[in-house]
């Protein structure tokens, strides 16, 4: 079928991306409902369990993600100003920050696993219901979030590659814009995950 590429509609692509972001928001909303209900039912246990998580690691990761969001947003400006080098630099910075985030996450999870805290572990079961739910939610939600980071990482890598070989330029920045939107979504969710798991102690 050769005919369907009659015109390109960037507004349509953007709207489509936003609709997809809505579904992602609702996906996490389901988990936030679960979090809300169990926090309401187990206030003390959630309070104490949250103290097990390192606020420093959480804060550092939050700042890393915020900066990475800013760098990719700046990349959307750079490409429009036809500054290819800066665009690539900013995208690489975003990728690097995403990698840093995942590294931190890895060590955070690893530490928990070494303390015998992981879904279904016996240590966790001994801690009681509230703690089980808190840590199950913690692993489920940050895990799903990390999965989104990986998807975003792949997406931004593709964008980076295409900017480099000039197939993505100031004339058709929509893929970069949409990857940016996706990356901000990842940031947006973390903005809520951070206080819910690390701060409310």
């Amino acid at each position: 079928m050769s005919t369907m590429h009659l015109h390109r509609d960037d507004e349509a692509s953007k709207l489509g991306m936003w609709l997809f972001i809505f579904t992602e928001l609702l996906l996490f909303a389901g988990l936030f409902i679960v979090y809300g209900v169990y926090r309401y039912l187990n206030p003390v246990a959630f309070h104490l369990a949250a103290e097990e998580l390192s606020v420093t690691v959480g804060t550092v990761n939050t700042i890393i993600l915020l900066v990475s969001s800013a760098t990719i947003a700046m990349a959307t400006t750079a490409i429009r100003l036809k500054n290819k080098q800066l665009t690539i630099l900013l995208l690489l910075a975003t990728l690097f920050l995403a990698f840093m985030f995942m590294t931190n996450k890895y060590f955070e999870w690893k530490g928990k696993f070494e303390h015998g805290i992981f879904p279904g572990s016996e240590d966790l079961l001994r801690l009681g219901h509230g703690d089980t739910l808190f840590f199950s939610l913690y692993f489920f939600m940050t895990g799903l979030h990390a999965l989104h980071i990986i998807v975003g990482f792949v997406l931004i890598s593709i964008v980076c590659y295409r900017v480099n070989n000039n197939s993505l330029t100031a004339n058709n920045p929509v893929l970069l814009d949409n990857s940016g939107l996706y990356w901000h979504l990842v940031d947006l969710i973390w903005i809520f995950l951070f206080p819910l798991f690390y701060l409310i102690t």
Binding site: V37, Y38, G120, L125, H129, L133
Partner: peptide, 13 residues
């Protein structure tokens, strides 16, 4: 993974 969100035995509802 036995996460227990809906398992009354693990505190789920």
């Amino acid at each position: 993974l036995n996460i227990g969100f809906f398992d009354p035995a693990l505190g789920g509802d």
